[in-house]
Simulated scan of single mutants.
Amino acid sequence: MNLIILFEKDFITENKVRLKDRRLKHVLTVHRAKLGDTLRVGLINGKMGKGMIIKLNEEEMEMEVELSEPNPPPLNAQLVLAMPRPKALKRIVQDVTTMGIKKIYIIKTWRVEKSFWNSPVLEEDSLFENMILGLEQGKDTILPEIEVVKLFKPFVEDRIPDIIKGTRAIVAHPVQDTECPRSIKEPVTLAIGPEGGFIPYEIDMLVKQGFEVVSLGERILRVETAIPVILGRLF
């Protein structure tokens, strides 16, 4: 936990917070903090700063906080992600949140197993929990927006044109000769398919809307591996 995320409910006065949950446990067992220590804190969707511990025991911690620092700039990209395996989605949400992506569309495609949509990982509380873990890691307080889309064709035909407007639209696909571009300066909309990739029909629809199809080379990577590799190349 590189940043302790604070919520409005934590404040007991204008500049004093009280914590009793897993954040307290982390401070005690990982930071091994003591009275008078200063920790990095940030208000959810607000500014960051420092919190000085003024009370600490096994039941609760109180800090005087000063929040005046801006967040790091977001990554200049948005993600269109075919629903992966639920266990992988948890890691992906954490990782892309850590990297600074602020808009994520989780979409249904032909190769996405129907059972995935019943996973509790897609529930609002679960997505929120994994976003918080990503923010804590990346020292950021601004939550991404995650939208779950279960109809592929209407999404691509009706909404994608507005979503990709002003961005370079890129779809990663293992069966493609064009190499992924490197170190670009413009905003990006990145589309990633499920395990096995998009089917040809889906690729054709994305291309018609303005996506360019690129590959990472001969090796086929898992989705959770491909995303940071592609973003590393792009930015």
Rank of each mutant, 00 (worst) to 15 (best):
E58T: 02
N130G: 06
A77M: 14
F116P: 12
P86T: 04
E62W: 01
F11Y: 13
L67H: 05
E14C: 08
E69T: 00
I160C: 01
D95C: 11
E62Q: 15
K16A: 10
D125N: 10
L127D: 09
N45V: 08
H26Y: 15
K87P: 07
K139L: 13
E179D: 07
L206G: 14
M83A: 09
T29D: 05
A191S: 04
E14H: 01
R85V: 00
D21R: 08
L67I: 10
L28W: 01
I184H: 00
P84S: 14
L127S: 05
M63K: 07
P144Y: 05
P74K: 03
H26N: 04
L221S: 06
W110A: 10
L81R: 12
E186C: 13
L143F: 12
D158Q: 11
I44N: 01
T189W: 08
P154K: 09
K9C: 02
R91F: 02
M52A: 13
S119M: 10
K87A: 11
M83C: 10
K9F: 00
R219C: 04
L206S: 09
D140G: 05
K90S: 09
H31D: 10
W117F: 03
K50G: 08
M1N: 04
E66I: 14
F155T: 09
T225L: 06
Q137D: 05
K108D: 08
V41I: 13
P187G: 03
E147L: 11
A172W: 05
H173E: 04
F198T: 07
G42R: 12
L89D: 05
D21I: 00
T178S: 14
K87Q: 14
L67D: 03
P154V: 01
V30Q: 11
E69M: 00
D158T: 06
R219M: 04
P73R: 08
L19P: 10
P74D: 14
H31K: 11
P144K: 03
K20R: 14
R219Q: 10
L135N: 12
R182Q: 12
S119H: 07
F11M: 10
K153Q: 13
